[in-house]
């Protein structure tokens, strides 16, 4: 019996930027609930407010007004240090531009969140990092520097880094924006696998075919949600990849 638990609840979330004398509304009274185990794709054109929304629920940015509860507890009243702890232990981030530390090996990048976590002992740090990298299929590239890795591999290191503290939610901001479609599907495969293991995923994307891998699609326009629906014919990354493989095989053997 899968009881639906509210993980993230926002009410009347508003964000305004003051540019000169005009207030620009990035978000206008957005209310939304995301349950545990969800895989949400947030869609919308640029400037629709989807990234702003994501940054706020990821505690990277503050709303101008509104209410935000995580696991039923208020988030916005917490101070900066508490938010940092929240990001460290409950949230994992995956960015479009990967945001790995340069000249730092894959393993050290993945160890980084553990270094900021007081509850993780030094002795298990390495083990955890290797586990996380193994789960994204990079067990053989532990010592590789980011510039020695392909885009897809870098994004996988970023996912391993997001995973290493066993978060409740992974926040992915255009995770496939810099990747080709095959690599994108591979990343989606990882996300679907993680989601099956019970991790909630919130992903911003503007590519409709990528959004098809999620369970729910939310569409933003001009700072408000204009659509929120379950995905009808959800794609399965494993099958999509098989399909691509067979297509390329046909091409290469005429």
């Amino acid at each position: 019996m899968a009881e639906l638990e509210n993980l993230i609840t926002v009410k009347d979330l508003t964000k305004t930027y003051v540019t000169g004398s005009i207030d620009v509304f990035a978000l206008k009274s957005v209310s939304l609930t995301i349950n545990k185990g969800e895989f949400v794709a947030i869609m919308g054109a640029s400037g629709s407010g989807k990234s702003t929304f994501m940054n706020i629920i990821g505690c990277l940015d503050n709303p101008t007004s509104g209410e935000y509860l995580m696991e039923g507890k208020d988030v916005l009243t917490r101070d900066k240090d508490e938010l940092a702890e929240l990001r460290n232990s409950k949230l994992g981030f995956v960015f479009q531009s990967f945001n790995l530390l340069p000249r730092t090996s894959a393993q050290e990048n993945v160890e980084l969140p553990l270094l900021y976590n007081n509850r993780v002992d030094a002795s298990i740090r390495e083990k955890k990092a290797i586990e996380a990298l193994t789960s994204v299929g990079l067990a053989d590239r532990l010592g590789a520097m980011p510039n020695e890795l392909s885009g897809g591999q870098q994004q996988r290191v970023a996912i391993a880094r997001a995973l290493v503290n066993a978060p409740l939610v992974i926040m992915a901001d255009e995770p496939t924006g810099n990747l080709d479609s095959k690599t994108s599907y591979e990343i989606m495969g990882i996300f679907q696998k993680l989601n099956d293991e019970g991790i909630t995923i919130v992903m911003v994307t503007h590519e409709p075919d990528i959004a098809q891998f999620a369970k729910t699609n939310i569409v933003f326009k001009d700072g408000t949600i204009i659509a929120n629906h379950a995905v009808m014919d959800r794609k399965n990354a494993v099958e999509e990849l098989k399909l691509i493989a067979s297509l390329t095989e046909e091409k290469s053997t005429p």
Partner: peptide, 14 residues
């Protein structure tokens, strides 16, 4: 780099 560190949980004083 400071932004990355803070995003993954570094506190200001860290």
């Amino acid at each position: 780099e400071i932004g990355i560190r803070m995003a993954i949980g570094a506190k200001g004083r860290d």
